[in-house]
Computed example of a mutant assay.
Amino acid sequence: MFKSSHNPIFFIVIFLVLDLGLRSSAFTNLNSLSFEESLSPLFGDGNLVRSPDDLSVRLLLDRYTGSGFISSNMYQHGFYSSMIKLPADYSAGVVVAFYTSNGDVFEKTHDELDIEFLGNIKGKPWRFQTNLYGNGSTHRGREERYRLWFDPSKEFHRYSILWTPHKIIFWVDDVPIREVIRSDAMGADYPAKPMALYATIWDASDWATSGGKYKANYKFAPFTAEFKSFSLDGCSVDPIQEVPTYCSDSVDFLESQDYSSINSHQRAAMRRFRQRFMYYSYCYDTVRYPEPLPECVIIPAEKDRFKETGRLKFGGTEARERRRNHRQQRPVIESDPDERKLL
C-alpha cells in the first residue's frame, strides 16, 4: 500500500506496530484448564470449594484448618499460572502460597519455587516474597521481598512461575518481577527434579506479617483466596523414573513462548518494580552471605539503597512513600497513581 518508505505515515505505522509489540501481553494464548483436568484436593476437605462449572476454586482458612490443592501431575520444567484474588479486610498472619515443590517425593533433597503472600492489615500495601531451593538447599534461602502496587483483594491478578533448565522467571500480571539465570556455579542449588504445583492457605502468625507482630484474628474468618484460569505447561513425568527424552521437546516449546522471554519494555517495567517495591534481597544481605551467591547480579545503584542486612536503608523509597502517605492522609497503596501500572 505504501509506495515509498519515506512516506511519514509509513514510519508512524511501523512505530505503532513496534510499540504495541513491546507492550503485548506475555499471556494472550494460555491454555485454561478446569480443576478436574489438572488439579486435585490436597487438604482441608470442606474448606476447598469448587465452582459449579469447575473453572475456579476457593481456599478457606478458619480456626480449625486451612486448605490447599496440588496439580495432578509432576512436571520436568514448566509454566505454572493462575488468576488469584486474596483475602479481603484484615488478613494478618494468613499466608497464601502459590508454589512448586517435590518435597513429598524427595523429603531431604527437595526443590521448590515460591510465591508467598504474607497477610495484610487493611489499608496497608500487601507484601509478598519469592524464593527458590534446589536439592534441599534450604539453609541457603534466596528470598526477595516486595510490596504490591495494587490491592490484590479487590480483583483477580495473574501470578506465574516459569522454570526451564536455563532460567526462572516470576511474573505478576505482565510484569516480570524476578529473573534467575542458571549458572554452572549454582550446581545442585538450581531446581532440577520434577515438581508439582501447589496452592495453600494457612496460619503463619508466628512469622508472616511484620515478623509475627500481627497475628491471625479469626473474628474475620473464614479467610478466602480464590483461584481461576489455571494454566499448566510442561513435560508430565513420573518423578521416580528417568526423565524421558521427549521432554526436550517440551522445553523447546516452553522457551518459544512469550512468557519465556523479557522484551525491552518488560525489562524496564521489572527495573521500575524492583526500584520501587523490593525491600529485601538476599543478594545484598552481606551479613548472611559475605560473598553474593553465584546467580546474583549486583547493580551498584541498587545496592546503595540497601543496608548490609539486605533491607532498604532508612529514608529509602518505602520511607519516602510512608511520609508522603502521612501528609496526604490516605493509604500508601493509593499514594501514587503512576505506580498502579508499571507497563
Rank of each mutant, 00 (worst) to 15 (best):
S67Y: 01
L55E: 15
V332Y: 02
I201N: 01
G187S: 08
T309E: 00
T317F: 11
Y218P: 06
S67V: 04
D233N: 11
R305F: 02
L293R: 14
I169A: 06
E334P: 00
F11R: 11
S71R: 01
S231K: 07
Y146R: 02
H77D: 09
G21K: 05
K313H: 04
G211T: 01
I161S: 11
I168A: 07
L42N: 12
I298L: 11
V49E: 04
P239Q: 07
K122R: 13
E116F: 03
E144Y: 06
S231I: 04
Q275W: 14
N135G: 10
Y284A: 10
Y282G: 11
R272Q: 14
I177T: 07
L342W: 04
P125N: 09
F35T: 05
L30Q: 12
S40K: 15
L20R: 13
G68T: 03
H166F: 14
D184L: 12
F69Q: 00
F273K: 07
P41V: 11
A188K: 14
R158V: 05
Q275K: 15
A319H: 12
R311K: 10
W163V: 10
V13S: 08
P8R: 03
Y133A: 11
W171Y: 06
I12M: 13
R330S: 03
Y133V: 15
K341P: 01
F227H: 09
L48G: 03
F150E: 06
G310W: 03
L118Y: 03
G134S: 10
N325F: 02
P165N: 13
I299D: 09
L20A: 13
T286K: 13
Y90K: 09
Y259P: 06
G93D: 01
L343C: 09
S38H: 10
F15P: 02
R147V: 01
P244S: 11
S81N: 04
T65Q: 15
L59I: 09
W126P: 04
Q76F: 13
A196V: 02
L343K: 11
S248F: 09
R23T: 08
W202D: 03
N73P: 05
K313V: 09
T200P: 04
G134L: 13
A97C: 00
F27H: 10
S264K: 14
L18V: 15
F98T: 02
R267I: 11
K167F: 07
N29Q: 14
E321A: 10
K85T: 03
